[in-house]
Design a protein around this nucleic acid. Structure first.
Lengths: 244, 244, 244, 244
DNA sequence: CATGAATGAGCCTTCATTCAT
DNA sequence: TATGAATGAAGGCTCATTCAT
């Protein structure tokens, strides 16, 4: 019995390791540099063993997407527990998002890969649904805060815009910025020296632009950051900012 | 002599066609669905002929990136010729950007591909520099408007932020949004029904958030749109909105 | 002791089931669709257990061949017990052969597989001899009836032909016909609608051609069929012709 | 132009060689001993070149089946040109069939392989139809002679039997016998020393059994054999019986 | 005995690139 | 310059067999 569970633990651990091996390859060298041989070698197991975990290469990609999405959702959930006004809770989400992007920079590449029909079509329906559920869940979490803000009259959306579309804006900004920060090594040369800080500023001003109360100037932004960091993401913050 | 130039024209035309063939494959089926055989077949020339134009597959990718970047720059230049206040000129750029994204949705995928070391390293220094120049040029064009705005006191950037970082924000938003709109077919299911309109709104509110004068409410936004569309991008607008 | 024998019974039963699982796969999907994993899964035991029964995949094939051959021999023996003239006893064998072919259509494919050197060479000498013995036994049984017929002057073989060669003729006809009936789905389209009946007719006319007394017209063929069916193969006949 | 045709000739010659390489492997070592690596090696060309001729392994099998079927049809056509009574013409077909079986012993194995769904399903519709056409053509040729015989009152088929079913009988006998003669090395040990002669005898007696005029005893069988051999199949007969 | 994870040789197939014509 | 057959490295995947538990 004990052995059973040990084996199972080892199995899950190895599954995790496969994903951890795939991750950096994808960000740094691209999808087509990822191959089963290489994974097996780095895993120090045979190819057959890798195939015992994932029936094909594409499932690894999808598993990666699901895993980071779940991680993201979990971090968003933690952030959403911040007690405060809607704008402050959204700010907490933004921080969670930045932490997430720094921890899983490959997520943005993987998210696009997974949409490619030739990849998507080879994956199992089970995992596909897991991804869809994750996406819906993550989006709902954030749009829920917008709904709350609208309900509390903290914000009034422009006519014709639904909360999901506001979330789409935040998502686009972070997706675009963090994608580029993860893959475009030319940014500093172009004058973008502090990308992450810039994103934070852009998000704040964008929400200000929408008149989301309390405006940036109306509350203690730094205090919220500090609270979220220390109370909701102590380990993550330590991990990311250890050198800063 | 006449034949010479006819041949040259044909040569350039064929080069263009190679890129036009590669384009949709990359957006719709991904990089690894793009192969020389397929290009040659669609081109109705032999593989050898394709190799006379591009020494390797990677150069095609880079050429694609350069070409769309140049197209983008050209469109931005045209937009920048809009006579008006800094905010209005920026608005013109935003419109140019949307038109560009609708015309070349693959650009955002190609931009990421080109950064992958295994691809980048196989390309020629000449073309690499062409890309860098293009990027710098395009960015300068946009940041130039921000500089103008700062000079004209239409905007005052937050302390520590350089104009390039503001541009980075606009770029991130559009890059992220248009990437997703081009590849993520699940967006409507998530409630994002009018992505392009949402992006326009987000950009306006973000600039409002930064206090860029004249604010959205202080000038006739629609009038600017109309002028830019009809005077600077008549053919593009017609092409894109023919069905709307 | 009781447990011992129960275990042994279970063991033999499982061995039987392995063969029963392999059978339809080979006829319907071919040898290379048969793999140990699949067998183990359908058996609902582990691969290791299958290997406890058969040391390699090839032995399963050989065991299948032996088993159906033994079944065939047993059915031929039963048919040979028919009391009557030599021609009638041969007719009984023919019926047994048809029943056998309908019950074990895979036999004809397996018989060919087993001859393939790369398969044959991996099997044990013990089982190889079992097959040889079975073949000899089965053939002797049939050629014995020919010998009887020759002795009783019911038939006189053409000069130079030995009884075994006459049997070879019957065997070829049935092997060829039943092989095709089992695997060639195109026969109806070619106009062969009642293959089994045709085979019966061909065999009768062939024996008539050899002048085997009593000729088809000289005895009550249908009566012999009826007797053999009801007295020697009641269960088999019921099983095969249940729907007819 | 001359070069073109030389290339083309070489190409066709190589295609032929691929089939000639595959042939003996399949009879002697079975389908699963046939692999693209091996073919390429024996061909002394690269694997890629083999794939330029056949898009997959299965197409090689089907091409083999088609080729031998066409060869068979061609030989049957030649035999059918024999001028004489229906029975004599059928006898000519029988001889053609024996010559064919001796020249292409693998045909009978390939014919069965091709029916396996996992193989059939991977082949192109074009080649599939070629096979069907070949089959129909070959069968029609033979059943045509039966029709002629019926028309000329040389034979009267048993009630309920169509000419195609009589052909099925001849086909079964030859298919079964020649399959076994090609693959079963144990036949001599079982007393079958002259298989081919036995088949000839069986066919003659079977047709006699059906009362096909002129009966075996009513005409000079050997004379017909001699004529067909020397006039219709001089090279084939020489090739096959060179050692006899 | 039963298990089933692990192995790894081996197979089919793809495709960027070369080069003789 | 255009061609496209030829190449062969590389990659995805299968599966018979082993063996520690």
């Amino acid at each position: 019995m004990v052995n059973e569970s040990r084996k199972e633990r080892e199995y899950l651990y190895r599954e995790q390791r496969i994903l951890d091996i795939a991750r950096p390859v994808i960000v740094q060298e691209g999808y087509h540099a990822l191959n089963m041989n290489r994974i097996a070698e780095q895993l120090e197991y045979s190819k057959g063993t890798v195939y015992n975990h994932f029936p094909c290469k594409e499932e690894i990609i999808l598993a990666l997407a699901i895993q980071t999405l779940e991680q993201r959702t979990e971090m968003f959930q933690r952030a959403a527990r911040f007690v405060g006004r809607s704008r402050e809770r959204m700010q907490a989400i933004g921080l969670a998002c930045e932490l997430f992007a720094r921890m899983f920079p490959e997520h943005f590449v993987v998210e696009q890969l997974v949409r490619i029909p030739s990849i998507w079509d080879k994956t199992s329906a089970t995992r596909q649904q897991q991804l869809y559920r994750g996406e819906t869940c993550c989006l709902s979490l954030v749009s829920g805060i917008v709904h709350q803000a609208v309900g509390a009259k903290d914000i009034s959306l422009p006519p014709g815009m639904v909360p999901e579309e506001l979330v789409f804006g935040l998502w686009s900004m972070t997706f675009g910025a963090y994608s580029m920060l993860a893959t475009n090594s030319n940014l500093p040369a172009l004058g973008i020296v502090n990308g992450y800080e810039a994103v934070r500023s852009h998000l704040r001003h964008m929400l200000d632009g929408y008149g989301w109360r309390p405006l940036d100037a109306e509350h203690d932004y730094d205090e919220v950051v500090h609270q979220v960091m220390t109370q909701h993401f102590p380990t993550e913050a330590a991990q990311i900012f250890q050198n800063a």
